[in-house]
Design a binder for these strands. Sequence first.
DNA 1: GTGTAGGTGGTTTTT
DNA 2: CCACCTACAC
Length: 732
Amino acid sequence: MEISLQAALDLLNPAQREAVVASGGHLLVLAGAGSGKTRVIVYRIAWLIAEQRVPAQAILAVTFTNKAAGEMRERLLDLLGREIEGMWVGTFHGLSHKFLRLHWQEASLPESFQVIDGDDQLQSIRRLFKTMGINEDRFEPKKIQAYINRKKDEGVRANQLPPAENPYEKVQQEIYAEYEKVCEKNGLVDFAELLLRCYELLKNNTELFNHYRARFSHLLVDEFQDTNGIQYQWLSLLASPTSSVTVVGDDDQSIYGWRGAKIENIRRFEREFKDTRMVRLEQNYRSTSTILAAANALISYNPSRFGKTLWTDGIAGEPISLYAGFNEEDEALYVVREIRRWLDKGRKFDEIGLLYRSNAQSRVLEESLVRSGVPYRIYGGLRFFERAEIKDALAYLRLVVNLDDNAAFERVINVPPRGIGDRSLEKIQELSRECGVSYWAAAKEAVKRQLLTGKIESSLRGFIAIIQGLCDIVLEDSLSKIIQAVIHDSGLLRFFKEQEGEKSQNRAENLEELINAASDYELENPTQDELSPITAFLSYTSLEAGDRKSGVEESAVQLMTLHSAKGLEFPLVFICGLEDGLFPHHFSRETPTALEEERRLCYVGVTRAREKLHLSYAEKRRIFGRDEERQPSRFIREIPENLIEETKRKVVVRASAFNESAFGSQSSMTSMAMGVESEHGYRLGQRVLHPKFGEGNVLDHEGSGERTRIHVKFDNYGSKWLALAYAKLEPV
DNA sequence: GTGTAGGTGGTTTTT
DNA sequence: CCACCTACAC
């Protein structure tokens, strides 16, 4: 295995090799986009283990996402040919979680503490508002949530805050303090708390502090430009005077400042970790020199950079295309036309990335893709474990393992609807406050005291019976069996199955999928000692929300925001909506630092492209229902003109992509999108002729029989809804 | 207690 | 414009 590692090292460029084999002291790797950053970090770990004889358990490697951690583990396995046992690999949150599970007593947490995600956190803040009698109009729960997380990310507890300067701040602080109490009481740990708690534990517990500092002689952090305050402190604390810290990052790709990432951490590292060697990875292996020149020019408008200049010995390739759409639909049609041209060259759908600044932009693009039969996959929206129905099922599970979990109780007491509404819940809550017991205990008490009317009481009895029944099987059954019981006995599955509509059917399917997720989890994580499998699974669902992309594994164009494109690459990339106010976003226009971050975001987008880059904007765009004139983004002007080739728009705006022949055999969606001929004889995308409005394309239809109306986009008259019975339309 | 009409507001997202 | 949430009628 060392032979293959040596062979692999020989293929690296000098800078990469220097970074991989640097020894003694700390290492800061400034790795430009596409410069082989991940490879370097993986090889470095392999080199430490295989060549330097560093024991695996002395290594701690931090990544930013679970996916990245998984990839790292996999690549190490490939390289070393064996599992790297004892090595800690994961996200800051994942590692902190592991740490707290191992040392829950020292951290003064209950053994079965629960990890809550942002959604749960917001809910508990909402609940807090109610109990504290705070008006949601004056204090938005979301703002308070952001405030609490910001403070925790800075490492500041409620009792460490400076005295409030105004009444608003005072209330904020009070809520923070109260929130801490509630979490403490219920054994809940939010994401920021994982880090803070872990940090405090290390800081205050000398024994653990000494142990872990001695253990981890090598610490490595990827995506270092995205670390926040507490993460930096966490790292500093864990690094002993004799350990070696490697951080890898790119200041030019820091795009998460708005959620607390501190780009300054790079400079701070250089300053505070003495004896740091800096290595720059500037050779790019991804993009054509044209694309790279554009990226370099763009990012050079940002002052105060570390100053890397990416270069490549690759070919110039094609110029960057720029298209000024008449409106956003025209822009979308341009995208479709260019996708088609790409396909005509024998290329594939999955080589294409379609990027935009905000999710709202995806709709128009999607519509255009559907109509022309382009298969696509969209990243964004809720992930599996974040879906409401899944969270409902998991809340049942939470309640079953911990009957005192009031949040879980509140979530499921009337889901599916069983006639126990706000009024009855309030009664239970009141009783709970009076007796100083959990909602669950109060509910049982309410039945005993006959506080509720007959119908509601029997519903409540039913609910209690369900939960108790589930409690009984928890001890003897496997995780997936328990989940199965949960979704059946709770009535959730039946509820969705009985409801009409695709949405509900989908939810029912998701619930069934949850059983699979649980049994997969069981297979991959054979009984972790001590920790109950249910608690472990619940933590897993919070920490790793599951995949974002929808399941179908067909070659498809990938649509996503620029943020989610980070770390990916595509032979062909479109960046849409390059308009002033959209990208850069108008919220970011005011402050220079925000604008710089937007520019970095654009830089990220540009550097995703390997072969060909398309930039586009619309001269008119519907913003909140209003047609507005748009100006091209300044980022377009910041790219040298000689790299750009502007595509001229046709004089008449035509929805012409529709009629062109299908996308060849690659597209199985084509028939679905284009071939469906409705009862009235017109199909989507078909050319039609109107005596007054001239020619156009069918966009949509609704109704049937005499009431059929079809939506036609005319070449010269815009788009109109026409009643088929009256309009004298002819197919062309 | 539950469904639907009006009002509101509307970046980026991982853990 | 559209999705989400809150306020009222059944």
